[in-house]
Amino acid sequence: KRYRAVYDYSAADEDEVSFQDGDTIVNVQQIDDGWMYGTVERTGDTGMLPANYVEAI
């Protein structure tokens, strides 16, 4: 699945990823209600991200 960031996010922990509004997130997997795991296409960084900061595309 592919998602697009709708807000900027700065990683708060080493297992999270930072991204900017408009970034595409690929290979996304749902972890639980609030978190997903995926790769930021622009940077190649992979990690956890907050589900409410992205939307499906």
Rank of each mutant, 00 (worst) to 15 (best):
Y9M: 02
Y37A: 04
A12H: 12
D13G: 15
L49F: 15
V40G: 01
I25D: 00
A56V: 13
M48V: 08
E14R: 10
P50D: 04
D8S: 14
M36V: 10
T24L: 14
T43C: 03
Q30P: 10
Q30R: 13
D15E: 11
N27G: 08
Y53V: 07
A5H: 02
A11W: 04
E14G: 10
T43E: 01
S10W: 12
D21Y: 15
I57D: 08
T46C: 09
Q30V: 13
E41H: 07
E16S: 07
F19T: 02
R42C: 04
T39F: 04
D33W: 09
E41W: 07
D23F: 02
L49M: 09
D32P: 06
F19R: 00
G34A: 14
G47N: 01
E16M: 08
K1T: 14
T46P: 03
D13A: 14
D15S: 15
G38E: 02
T46G: 04
D8F: 08
E14K: 12
D13W: 11
I31F: 10
A56P: 14
G44S: 05
L49Y: 11
K1W: 10
A5S: 04
A5N: 01
M36K: 04
D32N: 15
E41I: 08
A12M: 14
R42M: 04
D13M: 13
D13T: 15
I25T: 01
S18Y: 02
A51Y: 08
D45P: 03
V54D: 00
R42F: 03
D13E: 12
V6T: 09
T39V: 06
D13Y: 12
D15M: 13
I57Y: 10
G47A: 01
V28A: 10
Y53E: 03
Y9N: 02
D33C: 12
G44Q: 07
F19L: 06
S10K: 14
E14N: 11
N52M: 12
G34L: 14
D32T: 13
F19P: 00
D21I: 15
Y37Q: 06
Q29H: 14
Y7C: 15
D21N: 15
D33A: 12
G22W: 04
D8R: 08
I57Q: 08
T46N: 06
K1S: 11
I57H: 07
K1Y: 11
Y9C: 05
D23L: 03
G47H: 03
V40I: 08
